[in-house]
Design a protein around this nucleic acid. Structure first.
Lengths: 322, 322
DNA sequence: TTGTAGGCGTTATCAT
DNA sequence: ATGATAACGCCTACAA
């Protein structure tokens, strides 16, 4: 394997000089810079990131912490988009990435998790699907031992940023679009799970809309599950004039239930998953670009690791009709 | 960060002794072994895998190469199961894992890819979705610069193993089960894509069955796509007595097409994806445990990296009815 | 059986 | 502006 030593010899300079050139240090003459880059070219040198990570605490190794309930189709699609978006961007930023699933640490303490991450020379973490009642993860963030970016959260501190779309506004908009020009009174809102940030903020948007338009709103948690949504609608769907779902998957469940019941109701969803192309034709939804969101999260983490403070980053979404 | 040095001091032995204990070297007295482990406990020491990877070529860093390019739901589910299965097992085996997507190297040469992998101190690779006409990946395997395990392939060499179910037998069995006790003559076989190992072997199984039972077999490639399968069945489904699909997703497409046509035909699928619970009720299929397959692949890679030769590893599957 | 010392490929601190 | 040199944390001959 060709190392920085070979490059140095080939360029006729010291090892440390090569390192400085490669890491864009100041005070390097244009001449040696050229020499070094040429040597790098000729030898096809690629820096060993493992060695860099060992030597410098600066060098960024990033962990992706996935806690998306790995039980439903749609979640898999989201997770894959998140993962590939993050990894792709990380490669461009020259950051190493390891992917972790929270279930792997089920019975571990926060201390153990932190030690594990440190043993991997991790300095930054992106967390997907952080629930408010998840002690392990919440404490991990609170400890501030790592730079953290939470996707779909509102955690912000010196070492923590959050990246999210405006779920409240988005939920308001999609429901408003669905319901405008109708004279609807009773709305069934099928919500996610009790402790997730997205569920809460989406519900806020729904409440605001209902208040504004004087809708009678009934909310039920369905855990983002298609079958639960279906069951709920089968049992109670007929009593409502419209059904607003906090996810596309639940919208599909609701739609199927209505089909079985033989009645029609306006429905909308949320997320923009590809399954809707087949089973959600015509349904309004909010399309999130998961890959892009994840790339933005990686950008934000990169900033944090370079000394920037934490902040809230808002990402675009799109109102769509499938 | 507590290092091996701290452990050594705390246990009153030399650093190398600690290392030997931790790596199960022979010729260590039970007494010092105890001392070391106790120090490890008390200090909550976790070895730094980055340092280990740097110092020893033995130490295993593994890359997951994902080339499941098809943009469908089911693929995401498979990919997620593969990834989480591999990563979980790797953690148990104390192997570091990085996840890579082949599209990230679209315009790279094999040399560049190899250099990148070496720069990451990678010594082993698991490849998912290796197509026979994928030059980059095929050459990567052929070069034998890394230990490789191919999931759903038949590449075997000194440094290469393959892990797969017996697709031929499985396809035979599921179709045979579907068709037995019927007097069916003309079968439509909706196949995957031309260059994948699974497509070829599954088709072989189908051919054997057709020959044995004197079925008239027509095969059409549908790229594992639900919509293509649907289109094919809409156009030609009526001309056949039964429809055998090389994937569950295509089976769903076929089923929907039959529904629209208003006719009934026996259908079977392949894979065992969770979507079938909702949209494939009653359909026969072959259930693969992707997570388990991937874990086995990691085991096999571990063996390769420890000096074992390459081989073919066959994994169990299950014939199911959704 | 245990310890010493050199090396893995970088980065970073000092001199020069 | 450039170059020695000491870390980083661990592994591994080799020596004792």
């Amino acid at each position: 394997m060709v190392s920085i030593k070979d490059v140095a010899r080939h360029a006729g300079v010291a090892i440390s000089t090569v390192s400085k050139v490669l890491n864009n240090y100041p005070n390097i003459s244009e001449a040696t810079r050229k020499k070094v880059y040429q040597a790098v070219e000729e030898l096809n040198f690629v820096p060993n990131s493992v060695a860099a990570a060992l030597s410098s605490k600066q060098a960024g190794r990033v962990a992706l912490m996935i806690d998306l309930n790995v039980k439903t189709q749609a979640i898999d699609e989201m997770a894959m988009r998140y993962i590939s978006g993050a990894i792709t961007r990380a490669m461009e930023l020259n950051l190493d990435v390891i992917t972790l699933f929270v279930f792997m640490f089920q019975e571990k303490t926060t201390d153990e998790l932190i030690r594990y991450l440190k043993s991997q020379s991790i300095t930054g973490i992106i967390i997907y699907g952080l629930a408010e009642d998840h002690e392990l993860l919440q404490e991990l963030v609170k400890r501030e031992e790592f730079k953290c970016v939470v996707v779909d959260g509102n955690n912000v501190s010196e070492n923590t940023s959050s990246v999210t779309i405006d779920h409240k506004k988005a939920q308001y908009e999609v429901a408003e679009t669905l319901l405008k020009d109708t004279d609807i009174g009773k709305i069934l809102y099928i919500s996610g799970d009790e402790y997730s940030y997205v569920t809460k903020t989406r519900m806020e948007g729904m409440k605001v809309l209902a208040e504004e338009k004087k809708y009678e709103l009934t909310s039920i948690y369905a855990n983002f599950s298609e079958s639960k949504a279906k069951k709920i609608v089968l049992e109670q769907g007929k009593n409502f004039d419209a059904i607003v779902c906090a996810s596309d998957l639940m919208a599909i469940g609701a739609k199927n239930a209505l089909l079985e019941l033989g009645v029609e109701r306006p429905i909308c969803g949320f997320d923009g998953i590809s399954l809707m192309q087949y089973y959600g034709k015509g349904i309004y939804s909010i399309s999130q670009n998961f890959s892009d969101i994840s790339a933005k999260a990686m950008d934000e983490l990169h900033l944090l690791m370079n000394g920037n403070g934490g902040r809230m980053v808002e990402v675009e979404y799109k109102l769509i009709q499938n």
